[in-house]
Amino acid sequence: MRSLSSRAGAITILEGTIPVAETDTTNPDRRDFLYIATGAVGAVAVGAAAIPLVDQMNASADTLAVAQIRVDISQVAQGQQITVLWRGKPVFIRHRTQADIAEAEAVDWEALRDPEPDSARVKAGHPEWLIMVGVCTHLGCVPLADQGEYDGWFCPCHGSHYDTSGRIRKGPAPTNLPVPDYAFVDDTTLEIG
């Protein structure tokens, strides 16, 4: 007890061996420190209590569990497109023809509004697969496939035209259709997210 008393005045006081008034009226600095320390620890308690209350509004575990999806693409023939729902948004999975690819690669991409080569929008070794989030970068409508002036997608809301690589070519949209994170698990399975 004696050895502790210098370090932990609280223990001494809890034991009631030394009347508080005698020790501390002579030392107002120590008293102020005590109040500040108590207030600080109390503030930490309130702050810590706020963490769960704020974090509970973040995406829950079941939502995060479907943030990554696997798609079987073995049934998608060349020239076809399927749309899957990923994180609440449509994702276009396009099996491009050789003509589509050639058209996309022939473009002088550096002159485009959102300059990007076709090779940067597909995975090396899989140029026939174009994976994009199907949300127009203008105001969020879903573009229609195989329409528009560039044989790609056309957004009916405000007339944005995308080419066979999903790049913005004409209309109000500022950027290309975004490519999500994805990987080929094997030749016929795609993991998006």
């Binding site: 769960p52 509970q56 829950s60 575990a61």
Partner: peptide, 12 residues
């Protein structure tokens, strides 16, 4: 769902 999936749901 609250007990298992929501962040800190079990605690709240």
């Amino acid at each position: 769902h609250i007990m298992r999936d929501v962040n800190f749901g079990w605690l709240i």
